[in-house]
């Protein structure tokens, strides 16, 4: 099996731009067999924001998973095996960002796969392509943090832990 490239890019949300239209959720839903992997984050009925999986360097969800269904894949993604997942909701409890949706579909935890089918072909995830306001971007967080043109992205990218 050929070596898959390591993808360091992540989905980053610019809070200034998001208008809460939820088109990203719709794209995710359609792209993943009617199973949206995005969590609608609600801020006191004022705003709705998408909460994406950060694909952490040391994923707490994988630590918590009792059957090894969640694991760090060689591409750098945190992946979930549908066959191993028993729907115990440990990952939902463990995720510090609340990025695992609480509504389980087909008895297993929905989990962002970063649209691996598109990304490995050089594309961008469906939610980023769909975003009406251009609030979602698919960038390398290390590069984006230092960029002066990047306004809201740093708010979310701070949440990602990366090895020094």
């Amino acid at each position: 099996m050929s070596q898959a490239p390591v993808v360091t890019k992540r989905i980053v949300l610019d809070l200034d731009r998001c208008i809460g239209c939820r088109a990203c959720g719709a794209a995710c839903h359609i792209g993943h067999n009617n199973q949206s992997n995005l969590v609608p984050g609600r801020i006191a009925d004022v705003a709705i924001l998408p909460v994406h999986c950060r694909h952490c360097e040391h994923p707490a969800c994988a630590e918590a998973c009792p059957c090894g269904a969640l694991y760090k894949h060689e591409t750098g993604f945190v992946r979930r095996s549908e066959i191993l997942c028993i729907g115990c909701r440990s990952c939902e409890q463990a995720c510090p960002f609340g990025a695992i949706p609480s509504e389980f579909v087909r008895g297993v935890a929905p989990k962002c796969d970063l649209c691996i089918d598109r990304v490995l072909d050089g594309g961008i995830p469906r939610c980023v392509a769909t975003c009406t306001a251009g609030a979602l971007s698919f960038v390398d967080p290390e590069e984006s943090i230092g960029s002066p043109s990047y306004v809201g992205g740093r708010i979310q990218s701070r949440g990602m832990t990366r090895r020094p």
């Binding site: 239209c21 939820r22 088109a23 959720g25 719709a26 794209a27 839903h29 359609i30 009617n34 469906r126 392509a129 769909t130 975003c131 009406t132």
Partner: peptide, 21 residues
């Protein structure tokens, strides 16, 4: 998504995505 789309250019809105549904 149709990258050559003259209006939507490589993306679709929430409505457009629902075409598949």
């Amino acid at each position: 998504y149709d990258d050559e789309g003259r209006v939507n250019r490589g993306s679709l809105c929430g409505k457009g995505n629902m075409a598949l549904e």
